[in-house]
Design a protein around this nucleic acid. Sequence first.
RNA 1: GGGCCCGUGGCCUAGUCAGGAUAGGGCGUCGGCCUCCUAAGCCGAUAGUCGAGGGUUCAAAUCCCCCCGGGCCCGCCA
Length: 657
Amino acid sequence: MVCLKSVSANPFGVFRGQCVTLLSRAMQDIFPSVVIQPMSLAIPPNPQFGQLSSSVCFEIAKKLHKNPRDIAKQIEKEAEAAASSFTLIEKVKAEGQGYINFYIDLARFSQLTLESARTLDTEYGFVKTSKPERVIVEHTSANPIHPIHIGHGRNSVLGDALTRILKAQGHEVSAHYYVDDVGRQSALIAYGYKLLGKPEPEGKPDHFIGAIYAITNCLLEIRRLKERLENARSTPGAEEEVRDLQRRLDEWVSIAAGLKEKHPDLFNKLLEEISKAESPELEVNLLLQRYEAGEEETKSLIREFSQLCLEGFKQTLARAGISVDSWDWESMFVWNGDVARCLDELKKTPFVFEEGGVLEFDAEMVAQTLGLKEAFGVKPDQEIPSLTLVRADGTTLYTTRDISYSLWKFKRADRVINVIGMEQKLAQLQLKMALCALGYVKEARNLIHFSYNLVRFPGQRMSGRKGRYVTFDEVMDEAVARAYEEVSKRSPQLPNETKHKISEVVGIGAIKYALVETDPQKHVVFTWDKVLNFETNSAPYIQYSHARACSILRKAGKQNRKVDAAVLKEPLERDLVLMISRFPEAFIDAADNLKPNIIADYANALADKFNTFYAALPVLKADSPELANARLMLVDAVRITLRNALILIGIKAPQRM
RNA sequence: GGGCCCGUGGCCUAGUCAGGAUAGGGCGUCGGCCUCCUAAGCCGAUAGUCGAGGGUUCAAAUCCCCCCGGGCCCGCCA
């Protein structure tokens, strides 16, 4: 007799376990010679087929050359006799073409599920791992050169959800932001910032820095294109090139017009200064070299505006409810010698060579020599391009510095998850090969590139360089404003301060949900419609369901602790109980496979079931006090589960809306 | 040219890794439901050759092959 505990971290898992045990025993008794692994059970398409089912008979039938229905019947007979010793199994049936269907003992199961949710409360669903690890999730890491746009937002939201989910699973997780201050882009903005005489920011600092960046970049781009165009024009037979350059120049000129209109003062000042400049490109390169070399004046220059920009980011992220535990400056790894040491180590390997004054890393050779291709998902005959480690002028490249950074992260973590766009897939692979070359094969295998697709506008991609993006800030402003309208319309009686609080939670929830609900591998086309969705399949819908549950509970007052869940017999109640009971399995799936969208999906499905229940069955005015009590406990379990699911994807659950 | 990702009703999307019963949702459109716990809701209707073709299998949206369409990467950018 399996003992019936009153609380389980994973109620549906208990039922599943009982079914697996029962089925395995039955099979062993009847077909001791047949070995079938693994014994997986599926949720049938319709509750009329029970709550779990096995298609194992089809496999046995094949091996024994028998009819699957006959085998199912045999197993049914054997299992039916043993079922009574499993507390949560009501009956076992052979059905269809040869399925074994398991029917749950709803009365006991409801009791177990609702009791578990109520008792575990804020921990319900968060099934702990047996192997806690130290995990670093690197996310956002937007360059401190322009505001965080909605494309980065997807990164932040996914990274934050992963952080929350893995923490809930019992890992020691830390969210890291890699501040890329060493690249050419930072040098570029340093150039513009200096020309302007290090101005005090007007407005939000990251927006201000972003304007300087966009204008400087644009003006230099135009200047460069004009020079090339002149060259091409004087070259015979380059008509094609001339046309291409002219087209690109036209595009940048129109971008310039837009920037001039938006930031006339900054634009004109920069235009004036850059027109006077002898060789801006050279100056930018010089700034980059000086910064890498740790030259004091350049250091303070770049750190100054980077810091300003980060202040803006911190405001944005704080408003979005996304936290960062560590801000890791890329320059630190250059200045403290880590990058140089790392390069020295790499040079000692046979995988580094010099070509035309630059240092190259032969990732292909590493993969071949150490036999790594299969383990890292590379086809045997696919050649991995080599990676440039050091420029001719002695400065390093992004991926080079990332090698040092990765080693630094692995001193602090067992597993590192990099939330980085999928366009960097090759660079991440080269990085892993470099780690392997240095002897860190285990680390390379524990380095996970959590890739995601871009957020794009209909027809075009966002571009920081061209200043073509919608900022995370403006999306939040818009969503919150929209939410405020809704709240005012629906709950005019609430105090204004409360309305604002609710709008903030709802508007920002809507955005985060829209970014987390889609499979990361698919691109998201940004439309206000999608982000401002307040109907079914949105955060507001789930939040609303939660608020409705809270409302019932509030009106009910103090709950009775002694509840008999056996009185919940309606199909809608059964569906709800089952849905609640499956939250822990959904959680495990999401955590083990790093799929936050499973949680979003789950929450929406539970809200759906709850709203159906809400419309169909009265709680406070149920037919009997016993039934009312049981339904209240059910509603409470819904509330707990919805709230916990939302927390995992970083969305707050308001009690009123 | 090579590699990776995506392709599911008019639009968006789950399911694909671990193949199973009638492919779930949402938006839209059309029609209903507030003297009753919040109508950001509920109920019903509408709409699908799961990109195409082949193969494996008792069984394919799911696995294999080939092709088509879209995106990304193959930089002394990040």
